[in-house]
Design a protein around this nucleic acid. Sequence first.
DNA 1: GCCTACTGTTGCATAATGCAACAGAATCGT
DNA 2: ACGATTCTGTTGCATTATGCAACAGTAGGC
Lengths: 146, 146
Amino acid sequence: MAERSREADIEAVYGHVADLTRRVTARSRRLSEPLTFVQHSLVRFIAATAGTRATDIAAAFQLNRSTVSRQVNELITLGLVRYLPHDDDEPGRGRVLELTAHGRAQLDRTAADQQRILTHRLSGWTDAQVAALAATLAHFNEGADD
Amino acid sequence: MAERSREADIEAVYGHVADLTRRVTARSRRLSEPLTFVQHSLVRFIAATAGTRATDIAAAFQLNRSTVSRQVNELITLGLVRYLPHDDDEPGRGRVLELTAHGRAQLDRTAADQQRILTHRLSGWTDAQVAALAATLAHFNEGADD
DNA sequence: GCCTACTGTTGCATAATGCAACAGAATCGT
DNA sequence: ACGATTCTGTTGCATTATGCAACAGTAGGC
């Protein structure tokens, strides 16, 4: 009995995750100001992870290096990120990326927009429910390297 | 204090949702057998919603009618769905879609694959945790028409 | 110093999507 | 009953995001 309930829950989880993915993807197509979903993701990752190289992003996002190469160069063209000058003392290959001041400003603006939208979406939720949502999603995302 | 914790939780929710969306999207590019993510979504919706027309799918998925038109026609070409014969007694415009037996079989197969993958992913979770995940995602998806 | 491996780039390609215009048909108003 | 309106689905043209394969440059290992 409990086992069948678990199966039903897992099936429901899949459906909800698919619906959520589709909705977020659809919304990201409509709302691409000031950063698109992809741009925001990269900029956020670079901001949060010191010493990021393009190949690190590719690994983290499960994207091809060519995809990230193009996306990073677009961010550079937009003035949002830059390659750090190569530090000869630094071991390893690859060039380290960092946000520019402009990139930081755009990230803050997009993040503020997203925060406002989500705050409104969750306005009927209690603090405990929001905390539970955050914790459950964090747990679900843990170690999720397919 | 509690208010600031709520803000931090909301910010975390956004990050987790973005990570989840990206990972599901990346995985859907890798795993497109027997149905792609898009195909699976449409077939699942048609199976679950009697009387579905292409325009209903467009509304539910927040896609352009042209996109759904092409996708539906591809499913028809693959023998997964078909238009019902037009019922003259039926009011309203548009043509109703239904799954073929082949479509039902492919849906069942993809659903079984997804169920197995997700069951494995959640193997370390208790029944209560899985139920909470399903309930929390359902709650989050409710009324989420951006 | 040469070979290997890593990183990033580029040409060519696919998938998914949207806009605008169009065509056909159902619905509505007179 | 007929014309106008509206809805639905299609199609041409386009963009965005992505991957594969091959390549070039360079760091690291032996």
